[in-house]
Amino acid sequence: MAIPMVLGIVSPPSLDLTAASLLVLISLAILGFLELSGIHLKYSKFFNASSSSSISSKVPSRVGMFLLYTPAFLVGVASFWLFPDGDLRFLFLKSAITIHFFKRIFEVGFIHKYSGEMALDKLIIISFSYFFLSLSLIYTQTLNQGFPEPSIDLMYPGLVLFLVGICSNFYHHYLLSKLRTKGGKDYKIPKGGLFELVICPHYLFEILGFLGISLISQTLYSFSVTLGCAVYLGCRSYVTRRWYISKFDDFPKDTRAIIPYVF
């Protein structure tokens, strides 16, 4: 059976994989449109933790964020033991996913400043989503082992793009952390880096990092994840800009949401 190769994307012919790719894209897009409609993820700045049901158990925000990312990180670590064989592309993919979630855990421990609490029920749902994302990206790549390489090899450009994305995302998270004093709950207009042009450069580089992962993987599923994340983060950045405009009279109106000079 012929292997479909379109723009360097190669995947074994599978209705299940095609359906899974479409499902993850639609799911992430729905989350984005929910953000636009005012329904936000429960660790968002737009969500008032005090509005959570008093019945729901809560944990400190820093502990909650550790619990969000740790299962996905452990999937990446375990993949080196569970799938010790594989080609260089698979090694780069496992490494990128593991590094991505390790960076998030590192930022929780040493970069970000937190106040308040997180609802445990919502934490479990979001943590499982990250866990499934990490697991599915790695598992779908195992299905490509033994198939011919794509006609257009984008693995090394993807690796470079991933490193640029993750380092730049870290830098802008660092700038955000400097805005808030320890224990403080106030927000300020971010400055420095690409914050002079867009209000969410960390989202922009998050998307570039996922695009790098997709170029490393070169599967339909990984590109669907990246496109879905781009839609979600694009919607979230639009809402973030709208929030800053409503809170700060001196917010620079020429600062875009996520793409300099464009959007």
Results as ranks from 00 to 15, higher is better:
G146R: 03
V198Q: 02
P190F: 02
I152F: 15
V160P: 09
Y174R: 08
P157C: 09
H202K: 09
N144K: 07
G165V: 03
K182A: 10
R180T: 03
Y171L: 12
L159G: 00
L161E: 00
G146F: 05
M155D: 11
H172V: 04
L163A: 14
G193I: 00
L194M: 07
V160S: 12
Q145V: 10
K182L: 07
P150Q: 06
I207S: 04
L175G: 03
H172L: 04
T181H: 11
F147A: 10
G183D: 08
H173A: 08
L161P: 03
S177T: 10
L179D: 04
C167R: 08
P150R: 03
I189Y: 02
V164G: 04
L159P: 00
T181R: 12
G158P: 01
L179Q: 09
K185D: 13
F147E: 08
G158L: 06
L175F: 04
K188I: 05
V198R: 01
M155C: 15
L163S: 13
R180W: 03
G183H: 12
E196H: 13
H173L: 08
K178A: 10
H202D: 13
F205L: 01
K182S: 09
K188E: 07
V164I: 15
D186A: 14
I152V: 15
L194Y: 00
H172E: 05
F205P: 01
I199Q: 02
